[in-house]
């Protein structure tokens, strides 16, 4: 007797069998490839960090190897630099990279902040991950600082979907080179970050870089990202500059001064939480 292929029973059987086969197949593929996929995502972050340090010329393998050799992944716990090691005492980037998954979720008061330290032949660099929002979607970046915790050695930015040719220019080298040698703290020791200025930075101002032409909203996003992201590390960075310049004293009253100036002129001030405000 021939089966009636249009009977409900046959159709239901057919779909159930099909769905079970497909689900098994896809589950198998997803689980067996998962480790590789995660490793890829991790390597991408490592290579971006090396790029911020200006050391990502070669192949991906070489860059990742360099990272594993030269970088001390750490968390800043209660303002103290705490290198992360695995059970065998080897440097372990995983807890730090995991911590980066939700950078925006990290509050200024959060206890554990991810940071990467590079140390070789007397050269010390710190790389701080930041993330924020551009015009269309999320943007992120890595800021490499010299050992005084004040001078920018290099930055690298990434974005998910900024406009090509306009906002997307933040991810290009000419733009990223503008940040080199810029300072996060002003002469009085106030944290001012670096701002992208529409119409061009003022000559000689170490806290301003040129904004992207036609990418004002993205530029504002970068300004905010740097300000909010780096502000969380302010305490740690101060301790670095204090060690770096033992003799030049930072006045105590400047340390806890709220940082809210006219840096944001177009109504975005509301987004910027004053950092380290001690109610006075």
């Amino acid at each position: 007797m021939a089966i009636n292929k249009n009977s409900n029973a046959y159709i239901i059987m057919y779909t159930v069998v099909m769905v079970v086969i497909v689900a098994t197949l896809l589950t198998f593929a997803a689980t067996s490839l998962k480790d590789r996929q995660n490793a890829n995502a991790e390597n991408e972050k490592k290579s971006a960090i090396m790029e911020a340090l200006g050391m990502a010329g070669g192949s991906m393998e070489q860059t990742v190897k360099d990272f594993d050799e030269m970088i001390v992944p750490a968390l800043i716990v209660d303002g103290v630099f705490t290198p992360q090691v695995d059970a065998a005492g080897k440097a372990d980037a995983k807890p730090v990279l995991d911590k980066m998954a939700d950078l925006k979720g990290l509050a200024a008061a959060e206890n554990e902040l991810p940071i990467f330290k590079y140390e070789k032949e007397g050269v010390i660099r710190y790389v701080i991950p930041v993330s924020g929002k551009g015009l269309w979607d999320s943007i992120w970046g890595y800021v490499a600082l010299t050992e005084d915790g004040n001078t920018i050695a290099g930055v690298v930015f990434g974005h998910k979907g900024e406009t090509p040719g306009l906002g997307a220019e933040i991810a290009t080298e000419p733009h990223q080179n503008l940040y080199k040698e810029h300072k996060l703290f002003d002469d009085n020791g106030r944290f001012v970050s670096v701002k992208l200025v529409k119409g061009g930075a003022h000559e000689g101002n170490l806290h301003e870089v040129d904004a992207i032409t036609g990418g004002t909203k993205t530029s504002d996003g970068v300004t905010l990202m740097l300000k909010n992201g780096l502000a969380k590390y302010e305490g740690f960075l101060r301790s670095l500059s204090a060690t770096a310049a033992e003799d030049t004293t930072l006045s105590d009253d400047a340390v806890s001064e709220p940082v809210l100036d006219e840096t944001f002129s177009d109504g975005e001030t509301a987004d910027v939480k004053p950092i380290n405000v001690e109610e006075e």
């Binding site: 292929k5 159709i11 099909m18 497909v22």
Partner: peptide
């Protein structure tokens, strides 16, 4: 073997599976 009433759905499932792979 495909029941003609769900022919398009079966096609989509097969294609989608391959694409996800």
């Amino acid at each position: 073997g495909i029941p003609s009433r769900i022919r398009i759905i079966v096609q989509l499932v097969v294609i989608a599976t391959l694409v996800i792979l």
